[in-house]
């Protein structure tokens, strides 16, 4: 009952803020939502891995970088559009992720957390330096016409392509919700995430489930890697900032809370754009990220103590 009331209040506030923004600073809402979709679509797969495999995958952004490079060169070679590469890249990245999981991360699952962090960080360095050795630090960008698609309402002209990321984030979120709550494999994954010992005694192969979840997350990372190429230029270190950003969004949402990642992203995206829209607050946009994180985590721990 209390939860429902809180959700209703949150929804009412969000709608009110949205209406104010549409009338006052429509670009804040437009670009804020676009940024939110982009953040969330990258963070959700990392949230899945953290929620179920309990691994902070510090090579998350690098996996996406690898997927983007693979997409770029496949598309260049075949004269293909990156949008057509989404599913093939997802499959290839999933297989690659599964292999990497079996060869490395699996070995560290019982190790102390610090070892796991160092290992995935090591993977991140190996990936970005490997790409650096092969392709150097030079940046690549695919020239695509549709990414400049535009909409004009009155005096206001804005880009519409980035709304794709809002769609992707929603597909990822609802897709995963469906998978985790409606399919047997998904329920088994949830069970493993909540209690690996309990899962083993009901006959679930825990390590295999971890591998499946990791591969699934990487399939999403791969799909996002192909889409990332439409928006961004790529270079060896392009992925690493997104690891940190994703991790912070997950921390804001709370581990295992995938819809929460989307809400956290919206909060972050809209706030950032709001601050950037005014001369006096422009330079605060980067700091607000950390303020929000600290605020949300403090609020949650305070609430936790009260409960």
């Amino acid at each position: 009952m209390a939860i429902q009331r809180r959700t209703a209040i949150a929804a009412a506030i969000s709608i009110a803020v949205a209406i104010v923004l549409i009338l006052w600073k429509p670009t804040v809402l437009i670009y804020g939502l676009q940024a939110a979709g982009f953040y969330a679509a990258i963070a959700i797969p990392m949230g899945l891995v953290l929620g179920i495999v309990h691994i902070v995958n510090l090579s998350h952004g690098e996996f996406m970088m690898l997927a983007s490079y693979a997409t770029y060169f496949a598309c260049k070679a075949l004269g293909m559009d990156p949008l057509l590469a989404i599913i093939p890249t997802a499959i290839v990245t999933a297989i690659f992720g599964w292999v990497v999981f079996q060869l490395t991360i699996r070995r560290a699952l019982k190790a102390p957390e610090l070892n796991q962090l160092i290992m995935t960080y090591g993977l991140a360095i190996a990936f970005s330096q490997g790409i650096n050795l092969i392709f150097s630090t030079k940046t690549y960008k695919m020239p695509l016409d549709y990414v400049t698609s535009s909409m004009t309402i009155g005096d206001l002209s804005f880009g519409t392509w980035s709304f794709v990321f809002v769609g992707v984030a929603l597909v990822f979120m609802f897709g995963l919700q469906f998978f985790l709550t409606k399919t047997t494999t998904g329920k088994a994954a949830m069970a493993v995430g909540q209690n690996p010992k309990g899962a083993a005694i009901v006959g679930i192969n825990v390590y295999r489930t971890y591998g499946i979840v990791f591969a699934l997350a990487l399939a999403l990372v791969g799909a996002m890697g192909a889409l990332f190429l439409t928006k961004s230029a790529i270079f060896p270190s392009v992925g690493s900032p997104f690891t940190m950003k994703s991790f912070c969004l997950i921390a804001m949402a709370g581990v295992g809370n995938i819809p929460g990642i989307l809400s956290a992203s919206v909060l972050l995206g809209v706030t950032e754009q709001f601050l950037r829209a005014f001369r006096g607050t422009r330079d605060w946009a980067e700091i607000v990220f950390f303020i929000l994180i600290i605020g949300v985590i403090l609020a949650r721990s305070y609430k936790g103590r009260k409960a």
Partner: peptide, 11 residues
Amino acid sequence: AAFGGGDYTAM
């Protein structure tokens, strides 16, 4: 974008 940005809309 070199440091994780890449959104120039506000600027």
